[in-house]
Design a protein around this nucleic acid. Structure first.
Length: 233
DNA sequence: AACTTTCCCAACCGCCAGGAA
DNA sequence: GTTCCTGGCGGTTGGGAAAGT
């Protein structure tokens, strides 16, 4: 019983990829395109699991990857969208061109979490640490299907990958996202807050908090969204 | 210099959803 | 309707690098 393994583990390499393996993978994908991950290792002459090949390509070898340090602007976007989407790294990754879900997830776990804690915010709820969740809280329940985060490829809704397409015209990503959010209120993208700057005292706290219940979520945890910030004097 | 601890990130694992048979 | 296959996702781990003692 049980699942069939995705590959013959006894005959596959694991761990860090060598330059030669990278070269083989890149050459194969350049020649045949992406996809067919299960058969790719054999076709490319790699002793790797197909999944491993896919991950290596997506997270490291893809030519459109940005890599390097995250900018403040990228951090802000990640925090904003995490407050709405939760740990939906793949969705958040679509907002940041050249960044992968894995990269964003790692960045969140190693940097942004700590940053939020330093700012006095709970990284999970985005609420001020120690703030009781049910007092002075505005709830916005988005239970009806039409309020679900739309599927990216749905013909009926804007494709978010396109929606957040990297803007090469010169306007900032934040401006672009803000304007797009205004154009598509049905996506319910509340971008009304900006992160406190580094100069903002750690006592900054949310003035209004909306709870967004994602009816898709099976965790039942819901998503917390800050819609206003004020500094405590 | 040697050792230990902490940090970071690439890679792995298990699960799930969607489509094909 | 059911089963199988594949691609994709989020959580977690392991090893190397950096920092600290």
């Amino acid at each position: 019983m049980g699942r069939t393994p995705c590959c013959e583990k006894a005959h596959t390499n694991k761990g860090a990829w060598t330059q030669e393996e990278d070269a083989r993978l890149v050459a194969h994908i350049q020649a045949h395109g992406e996809g067919g991950w299960r058969s790719l290792p054999k076709a490319a002459g790699l002793l790797r699991c197909g999944k491993s090949c896919r991950l290596r390509w997506i997270n490291y070898l893809r030519p459109d990857l940005k890599r390097g340090n995250f900018s403040e602007q990228e951090d802000e976007l990640i925090i904003k969208f995490h407050s709405r989407l939760g740990n939906k790294w793949s969705l958040i990754a679509r907002i940041l061109p050249g960044r992968t879900d894995n990269e964003i997830k790692n960045h969140w776990n190693t940097h942004i979490k700590k940053k939020l804690v330093r700012m006095g915010l709970d990284p999970k709820s985005h609420l001020p640490l120690g703030e009781p969740r049910d007092s002075n809280t505005t709830y916005t329940v988005l239970a009806s299907p039409k309020h679900k985060i739309p599927p990216f490829q749905s013909p009926r809704t804007p494709d978010i990958a396109d929606f957040f397409q990297y803007d090469r015209s010169g306007s900032s990503t934040m401006e672009l996202v803000a304007s797009k959010a205004e154009e598509h209120p049905e996506l319910n993208l509340d971008l009304s807050i900006s992160l406190p700057s580094h100069s903002t005292p750690a006592t900054t706290r949310a003035s209004t908090v909306h709870r967004t219940v994602d009816s898709n979520s099976n965790s039942g945890s819901g998503l917390w969204c800050l819609t206003g910030m004020e500094a405590i004097s």
